[in-house]
């Protein structure tokens, strides 16, 4: 555990986990508890971030990182400003795409009238896209993709009129690095 950035009121947590869906429920639980206990987002956003992280990790495992490889999840919380979540894969997966290809796919699926006919394909557009303010897809220099989403607290509250946040929010915790 490293302590840093407390003066800037910024919390950074990085988690590295094996390419296996078995571990994702633990990341979901962690996300739910971290957002509830550490940020001043409304509770429903804790569940929404749980879904965002789940969808991004599943995509990274399914397409981006081969079994035996890993994925890296990073949370950056800026107090009273935003939560940024990034998921990185290694580009060793069977179904890997580069950033431009994934961006094209995303744009196609975002188009009005696009019909989702299969079992898959809704997560990135309908969940990650709808519940974030910024969605950025980048190629990693070492291979693979880094997908980052940002949600600003002021925008989260626009749609939460009347749902007052309890006072006395906890101070952001120090940077934490976990390896599973």
């Amino acid at each position: 555990m490293e302590k840093e950035n407390l003066e800037n009121k910024e919390l950074k947590i990085t988690i590295t986990l094996p390419t296996n869906a078995y571990f994702i429920s633990g990341i979901r639980d962690f996300t739910l508890n971290m957002v509830k206990s550490t940020t001043n987002f409304e509770e429903k956003w804790a569940y929404r971030f749980q879904s965002i992280i789940d969808e991004l990790c599943n995509n990274a495992i399914e397409y981006g990182s081969a079994p035996g490889s890993d994925i890296r999840v990073t949370f950056i919380y800026k107090k009273d400003d935003c939560l940024k979540i990034s998921v990185e894969d290694t580009g060793t997966g069977k179904g890997k795409l580069d950033a431009a290809e994934l961006q094209k796919l995303l744009e196609e699926r975002k188009a009005p009238g696009y019909a989702f006919t299969g079992i898959r394909g809704r997560g990135l557009v309908k969940i990650v896209g709808e519940w974030s303010d910024e969605l950025k897809i980048e190629n990693r220099p070492e291979g693979g993709l880094k997908i980052s989403v940002t949600k600003f607290i002021k925008d989260a509250r626009k749609n939460d009129a009347g749902l007052a946040k309890p006072q006395g929010m906890s101070t952001p915790e120090p940077t934490i690095k976990l390896n599973i």
Partner: peptide, 13 residues
């Protein structure tokens, strides 16, 4: 307690 997008895809199907 939780359902992912694939579960929703199955429900739709």
């Amino acid at each position: 307690e939780y359902m992912n997008s694939k579960s929703i895809g199955y429900l739709t199907d």
